[in-house]
Simulated scan of single mutants.
Amino acid sequence: MTAPTAGDRLLRATEFLDHDSDAVQALVHRVLPDGGRGMSDIERARALYYEVRDGIHYEVYGADLSREGLKASSVIERGMGFCVHKSIVYAAAMRAVGVPSRLYYGDVRNHLASPKLEELMGGRVFTFHSLTTLLLEGKWVKVTPVFNALLCRLYKIKPLEFDGRGDSMYHPYDEEGRRHMEFIRSHGEFDDFPYDLVVGGIRRAHPRLFESRDTTARGSLVADATGQDIPA
């Protein structure tokens, strides 16, 4: 019997990257009805990138950080989450179409958070910011399908694009030339979501962010930006 390769391992369904679930399969089918037949892996990756970036609303408030709530299927069904949630969905979707994926975590300094969010986070350093890494055309690339276009407009941040060949990480400056986000520490890459490491790390670093053990404080990033709730 041939030993499984690293690529085989990074295509498996896992507890959190549950791409064999109905919810993940439905998302992929909606974007690629025939599974992307005739498309390259890069074309599939780009199509699913924009679906996750803009189809799942980015929201830090009211986020479910339970084990069940962090499964890709649960995030899709809820239709919202922040970087940790959305990166899980994208990694699962890419495995569903045969592209090896992993999850990457790093601490970032965010210069454009709202005063309310800064207070809850205890400053401008956000721990365990998440993105996805993909193996495309023999090269690993970092991909961040996180901040959706609506919030980019409200916060005057350039939407992050992905061409399928180069790393897609947060632009360092916003539309007005102000610094937006910089990576200051890496926690590495993982084959599945390291629940205790990431959720435990966020709880320790940002205790005021949590309303309960598994749920972040109530609020709305749209409301923070505009002073009123606007549908996502």
Rank of each mutant, 00 (worst) to 15 (best):
F190K: 12
D64I: 04
G55I: 00
K71Y: 01
V108M: 13
M80V: 03
R185D: 03
Q25P: 01
H129A: 15
G188P: 02
T132R: 08
M181G: 05
P100I: 09
A113S: 06
Y105D: 11
P100N: 12
A149P: 00
E137K: 09
L135H: 08
L209Y: 00
A96P: 01
P100E: 09
N148A: 12
F162C: 04
L131D: 11
G79P: 02
L27V: 04
L103R: 06
L10Q: 10
L134Y: 00
L27K: 02
G177I: 13
E68N: 06
S87N: 04
D41M: 06
R153K: 10
L112Y: 03
I230P: 00
A205E: 01
S220V: 01
I184H: 08
W140E: 14
T215K: 14
L112K: 11
A6E: 15
V125T: 13
D191G: 09
V199K: 05
E211V: 10
H29N: 12
V24C: 00
S73K: 01
C83T: 10
A6W: 10
V52E: 01
P115D: 12
V75F: 01
A96M: 09
V99G: 07
H29Y: 11
F183M: 13
G166K: 14
Y58I: 00
E137Y: 04
V222M: 02
C83L: 06
V31C: 05
H29M: 13
E211I: 07
L154I: 08
C152T: 05
V24T: 01
D8G: 07
I42W: 08
E189N: 05
S21F: 04
I42E: 11
V199I: 13
R204G: 10
R153D: 10
R44D: 05
V108G: 05
F16Q: 05
D196Y: 01
E43D: 15
C83S: 14
P207D: 11
E43P: 09
G219L: 12
L17S: 04
G122C: 09
P194S: 11
Y195G: 08
R53D: 03
L221G: 08
H129W: 09
E182Q: 11
